[in-house]
Design a protein around this nucleic acid. Structure first.
Lengths: 109, 109
DNA sequence: ATACTTTATGTCATTACTGACATAACATCA
DNA sequence: TGATGTTATGTCAGTAATGACATAAAGTAT
C-alpha cells in the first residue's frame, strides 16, 4: 500500500498495515477501504485538474464544501455512491471510474 | 443498452431508452444506473457460478434473502456500496469489480 | 396435487448517510 | 497587519439505505 494513502487512513482511525493487514481489519474490509481511497484520490485529481475548488464542486453536487472535503479524505461517513456521483459530475465515464477503482496502488501483496 | 437489462430497469420504474436516454434521466443518472446494473449482474453471475442460493449469500453478508433479491434486481433502494460488499464477499477483487463496473453492455450510443 | 426450495416484492423500524452549519487552519496578497 | 480564498473537522437534524418479516410466485421434485 502506498505510504501517503496509509498515512491518510491511519490519521482517520483506520488500522492498516504496510504490507497487508496491520490489525483488526478483515481482508474484505481492507479491499473496501482501498477502493474508497482510490476513488477519493481520483476525485481530488479530477477536481484539481479542472481547477475547481471544493466549494464549486459541492454546488454542482448540490452538497457542501465540508462534505467534499470528507469525500476526498475517504471519511467513514462517505459512501462509495457519493464518490461515484462526484466523479460522474466531473465527467468521469464508467470506464474511468473502473480504472480508478481497480488501480493497484501499492507494492504490498 | 442490452435488451434484458433495459427490460429489468423499466419493470422497476426506470425510464431508459434503447439507444440513449428515452426520457427523464439525465446522462449522469443513466451512467449511475448502468453501473449499478452492471454490478448487480456481476453479483448474480458470481453467486450462481458458486452454486449459492440468495439465502446463503444473505447469511454471509449478514443480510436477508429479500435484500439480495433486490440487489440482483438493481432496486432503487440498494446502494453501490452494498453491491460491492456482496461482490467482495463472493471473492471479487477490486480489479474484478472494476471490470464489472466498466463493462460495455450495449450496442447503443 | 402436495411438499419443498428458491426467488420476487411490499412494508416498516432501526441505522447509516447526507447536507448544512460553525469553526479552525493554512495560504496568498495587499 | 488584515482580508480573502481554500481546505479540514466536529456536530446534528433530516433523509435514504438496511435488515427483517410476510407473502407471493416460480421452479422441482415425488
Amino acid at each position: 500500500m502506498e505510504k501517503a494513502k496509509q498515512k491518510r487512513l491511519e490519521a482517520r482511525g483506520w488500522r492498516v498495515g504496510s504490507a497487508g493487514t496491520f490489525l483488526k481489519l478483515s481482508p474484505e474490509e481492507v479491499a473496501l477501504v482501498e477502493m474508497k481511497v482510490n476513488l477519493s484520490q481520483a476525485l481530488r485529481a479530477r477536481r484539481e485538474a479542472r481547477g475547481l475548488s471544493q466549494l464549486t464542486l459541492a454546488k454542482r453536487l448540490r452538497s457542501s464544501q465540508s462534505r467534499v472535503a470528507k469525500m476526498e479524505a475517504a471519511d467513514r461517513t462517505v459512501s462509495i455512491d457519493l464518490l461515484v456521483r462526484g466523479l460522474v459530475i466531473l465527467g468521469a465515464k464508467p470506464r474511468d471510474i473502473a480504472r480508478a477503482l481497480g488501480r493497484e496502488t501499492g507494492a504490498a501483496a
